[in-house]
Nucleic acid binder design. Structure first.
Lengths: 144, 144
DNA sequence: ATGTGTGCAAAGAGTTTGCATAGGT
DNA sequence: ACCTATGCAAACTCTTTGCACACAT
């Protein structure tokens, strides 16, 4: 956690109060290379001598998502929401169907495609989701 | 529902008993142009003078997914699972963030990318998800 | 001082499970 | 006859909400 003040300015501008919980959540997501569930955030704080209630996490997520500071990710198959920081350069992942290991995919090759689809459908495009699923090297010979 | 026997052969081969509920579910998904939630399937049958319990739907889904006859889709943001028939040529969609209107995207341009990622990560790739989100022509001037 | 933020417990929503009965082979 | 499939109700998991108190501005 190098810079606890990373989000101070933005929080003020967006009308948020700067609370410890809010900055904690944002820092955890900022420093994570993968989307985290509410429970994962909860446990992280617990293991680092802090404490927070799950309802506080969910309530903050709602507001941070509204202001586009956080993105809700439902790409796993366990019906559990995960959250990630909204970054200028978003990332996609490849996810192991057995152990849930995730590796980032560097490129996002969808800019052209989005333009094409915008023209064809008249949609105003906000975002997209793309993830690949399979079995990682450790799991692929032992899928069950 | 043109052909109630579409899945009979497959069901037998996969060790399923041919029950009315199972073929109903498969036909509904087969004839739907979008993924359906368990409740949507439940209501569809109810409105068509049939009846089924939600647990039956969920139990069937688990088994049909195991055999790759059905795909679980978690790409919506409401933490509700949706199910779709597994087709030879899968489709991607663009989804309106307000009214949930979906339009199919014709192409699936990810075959090359999958090969590249397979080589880079060692993953054995099973599938991928890709959807685009935005506002359709009707909703884009009135997002709230 | 005011309004926003928080914890706790309870409520909600979606999904899963145990058990007795019904139905397919 | 056997074993799978189903309905019902209860249990479970994740998320949301009401309320009283705490904290940031």
């Amino acid at each position: 956690m190098e810079n606890k003040n990373r989000y101070n300015e933005i929080l003020t501008k967006e009308g948020f109060k700067k609370t410890k919980h809010r900055t904690d959540i944002l820092e955890i997501l900022y420093n994570s290379d993968k989307p985290l569930s509410a429970e994962e955030i909860y446990l992280y704080l617990k293991q680092n001598d802090s404490s927070i209630s799950l309802s506080t996490i969910y309530r903050n997520m709602d507001r941070l998502i509204e202001r586009n500071l956080v993105i809700k990710n439902t790409l796993f198959n366990d019906n559990k929401a995960r959250f990630e920081i909204s970054r200028k350069n978003h990332k996609h992942h490849i996810i192991c169907l057995k152990c849930n290991k995730m590796i980032e995919i560097d490129e996002c090759p969808f800019k052209e495609l989005e333009n094409k689809i915008k023209n064809e459908t008249g949609f105003e495009i906000e975002t997209h989701k793309f993830e690949i699923y399979g079995y990682c090297e450790n799991c692929k010979d032992n899928k069950k």
